[in-house]
Design a protein around this nucleic acid. Sequence first.
DNA 1: TAAAAAATTTAGCCGCGACTAAATTTAGTT
DNA 2: AACTAAATTTAGTCGCGGCTAAATTTTTTA
Lengths: 232, 232
Amino acid sequence: MTSASVQNYLKAIYQLQENSETVTTTALAQHLDISAASATNMIKKLARLKLVRHSPYHGVELTTAGEKMALEVLRHHRLIELFLAEALDVPWELVHAEAEKIEHVISEDLEDRIANFLGDPERDPHGDPIPTKAGTVERPEYQSLLDVGAGQSAVIQRVSDQNPEHLKHFSKLGLIPDATVDVLSREPFDGPLRVRVASGREHTLDETLARAIWVTPTVEKKAYRAKSKSHV
Amino acid sequence: MTSASVQNYLKAIYQLQENSETVTTTALAQHLDISAASATNMIKKLARLKLVRHSPYHGVELTTAGEKMALEVLRHHRLIELFLAEALDVPWELVHAEAEKIEHVISEDLEDRIANFLGDPERDPHGDPIPTKAGTVERPEYQSLLDVGAGQSAVIQRVSDQNPEHLKHFSKLGLIPDATVDVLSREPFDGPLRVRVASGREHTLDETLARAIWVTPTVEKKAYRAKSKSHV
DNA sequence: TAAAAAATTTAGCCGCGACTAAATTTAGTT
DNA sequence: AACTAAATTTAGTCGCGGCTAAATTTTTTA
Ligand SMILES: [Mn+2]
Ligand SMILES: [Mn+2]
Ligand SMILES: [Mn+2]
Ligand SMILES: [Mn+2]
């Protein structure tokens, strides 16, 4: 019923809302790689459809109906990602691009069958929560690996799926959801991060990479370096 | 690269060519449920792209390039049908509609993974041959169940996937590829057909249904009714 | 073989979702 | 507070793939 374009806009607005309260035309345009004028155009259409509230020159916000639609698309997307990974061994840096297209064309019946096949999963391969059929979704507050102090260890909860090259790199290093990492040291001024993974291997992550990994800290292993939060 | 519309037109032309040498604008329009004017429009575009030869007022024909593209789409379609049936138990009357959409959005890599998962299959769930990656396809000459004489038996090779209600009915009766049917009797003037399936159950099929089932005849089981081809 | 019917193409239109260039509004700076 | 820069919207255009109505060509029928 609603076009793939409308679905992509709603999904983008939802994802931008996760970071900042209100979503600007420019942010939306950049996220979707289109011109600002095109974004304005679609925003006006979405407002007509009562899927967003538009405060001209100030930003856009999903209505309840708009958020529900966004979550439906997001559910499709993440179920498909996991399904491709599980059923066909598609590597996790490729599932996003495939899901971006397939999410718009599957029936509700197929969605249900995929969810059932996967045992009603709660996370996609990157650790992102899968919205429920009812239209709810978890919003766990993770910490960026960047903000973990030296000497602390943490469990990876999710990894940004935006950059396939980064994903490929992360899986090579063992930086995947549920893996434990020890932060060894941190260069000043947001410099690179030295980490050790469960296998014992040590790796250096620059700021951009570390920012794409979200974790929950575990209890500190070693006491000889107690300074953590205030450090750096 | 090429749009879903172009792909659907090419596929439609290919399938119409299987029955009649040349494909008319009207036949194409009916097949795709669009106006004749729209069909003409797209035909001219396809001709510009060298995917068809158009003889105005007389019909259209795929070029080698057009046929290759049609077969690529058809390969996607049939692999997806079989994959949905095998991996997710989607009933065979539903796989066609899903595949009709998904066929346009999967990558070549995903196509390869699906083919590999299925063990490079040769037939889709309805018995239709799956084109190879190289762009070739079998064109077996089956006989309609309608043309099998009383007393003969036959092995079902394929069943038309055009009508979901018919498919549902066929699977209920056990009329699926590789099943053996005995034709018991045939009413005159293309009247209904009485058949027995392997389970021993007997069913009556009207002309439309019988025409949708394609078979290869087997050796005759019983000699007391030797008249076969000339009978009816 | 001429007239009628059917098939096909042409002409003109529309909604969608993109674009650029120009106008407008808002935010930042001195 | 005025000026400037940045963000946003408006205006106008385009290609795509549909549509209807009218013109044209082919086929059928009388
Ligand atoms: Mn998408
Ligand atoms: Mn993901
Ligand atoms: Mn299709
Ligand atoms: Mn089929």
